[in-house]
Each structure stands twice: as C-alpha cells, then as structure tokens.
C-alpha cells in the first residue's frame, strides 16, 4: 500500500512537470497561438487509450486460451482505463478544433474511428454488466473484445479511404508537416505521465476486480454451505 501511495505521488509529480513543460517550455504556435497547447494532453491521451485497448486485447486472448481469472481482471481494467483516456481525447479534440478549424467535429478518419472505438468498448463493458456468472462473463466478453479489436484497423481503413475530405494530420502527415523540435520533445515528455497514470489506474482497478473475484468465491461458498 505504501509503495502504491509513493507511486501515485510520483505520477502526480510527473503530471505537474508535464503541465509545466506544456505551458512554459513549449513555444507558442505561430499560427494557432496558445490553444494548440491542448495537444500535449490530447495526443498522449489518444495514444495511451489505444495502448490500453491493446492491453485489453492481450488479456482477452490470454483468458480465452488459459482460463485464468487474472487475465479477465486485466481485460476489464484495461478496457475501463482505455475508455477514460479515449473519452478525454474525444473531449479535448473538439475544444481544440473549434478555434482552429472553426468546427467542433468533422467526420475524418481519426475522429470517426476513435468514436467507433469508444462505442465498441462501451459495448464491451455493457456486455459485462449484463452477464451474471463470472466465468461466462469473462469468456464471452473476452471473445467480444477480440472481435472488437480486430475490427479497429478495418474501421480505420474504411473511413480513411472513403470518408476523409480533410487536411493531412500534422504529425506523421507526410512532407511539409511536422512539429518544432522543442514541441516534439515536450510532446514525447508528456506521454510519460500518461503512461505512468495508465499503469497506476490499471493496477488499482485490477486490485479492485481481484477483490471482487475473491468476494464472489466466498459468497458462492457460503451459499452452497
């Protein structure tokens, strides 16, 4: 428990350092002004969310093959944490888009895929809440999680090919795009606290799920006794 508290304090410090870097070290964008600084929250959230969903997928596959409840706990923890980061990403996106693009939302590949991804993992959690028996819940939600994750590249591909009428992304968007080196460094640095936060949240959520699992076993033993 002490270790956990120390780690949480470390995460808070990292977050504070990242906020400092985002506000005071990164230069103000020549065209977008101050509002662009939200990318230091938005981009790391998006990437951390995707990473969490990947962890969820790993947990799902491992559960189906090994049938150890631990993998199920990992799966649900990662899905919830991923959903939290993706929600943050979906909220910060429009806040940036309104002053820069003049619109809150556009149906381009990244936005739309993220929204579909969000819906898929909401469905995953909903499915879990609608199955009582723990083993059945673990297996069926793991299978759905696998199908959902396989779907992600297909969703992205389909929308990117047919639905995007929109400027190329600034980062990794081909020639002419790119970030100022300081901005890039700050952006990478801002990813660290998000990853650390992801680990912290997943750990706590995993512990909670493990306790629930144990409680469930005791309850069932009492019922049969």
């Amino acid at each position: 428990m002490k270790k956990q508290a120390a780690y949480a304090a470390f995460v808070v410090l990292l977050l504070a350092a990242a906020a400092y870097a985002a506000f005071f070290i990164a230069p103000t964008d020549a065209r977008q002004g101050v509002v662009y600084r939200i990318i230091f929250l938005h981009v790391p959230c998006a990437e951390t969310g995707l990473l969490s969903f990947f962890v969820c997928f790993v947990g799902n596959v491992a559960y189906v093959l090994k049938r150890d409840a631990k993998w199920d706990w990992l799966g649900v923890s990662a899905a919830e944490v991923g959903l939290a980061f993706t929600t943050a990403c979906l909220v910060t996106g429009p806040i940036w888009a309104k002053p820069v693009w003049g619109i809150w939302w556009t149906w381009d590949a990244r936005l739309t895929s993220t929204a579909v991804l969000w819906l898929l993992y909401v469905a995953y959690l909903l499915l879990r809440s609608l199955i009582e028996e723990p083993e059945r819940r673990a297996l069926l939600s793991a299978l759905f999680g696998i199908f959902a994750f396989i779907d992600v590249p297909l969703v992205f591909g389909s929308i990117r090919w047919w639905r995007t009428q929109h400027p190329q992304p600034v980062i990794m968007g081909g020639p002419g795009s790119g970030l100022d080196p300081t901005m890039k460094a700050v952006l990478f640095f801002c990813w660290a606290p998000m990853l650390a936060l992801m680990v912290l949240l997943m750990q706590s959520r995993y512990r909670l799920e493990a306790m629930r699992g144990d409680l469930d076993v005791v309850r069932r033993e009492m019922e049969t006794a």
């Binding site: 579909v116 819906l119 898929l120 469905a123 909903l126 499915l127 609608l130 199955i131 009582e132 059945r136 069926l140 759905f144 199908f147 959902a148 779907d151 297909l154 969703v155 591909g157 389909s158 929308i159 047919w162 639905r163």
Partner: peptide
Amino acid sequence: QARMRELLLPLLLLPLLTPVLVA
C-alpha cells in the same frame, strides 16, 4: 447468453459493422 439480449445485440453488432456499412 446475456440479460436484455434483444437490446444488447444491436449495441454490440452495429459499431462492429461500421466498415461493412461504409464500404
């Protein structure tokens, strides 16, 4: 195998079918 199955199936299925719908 879940509760509320009639409502659940569209919620699970429709987002998954986005690529089919688009293409």
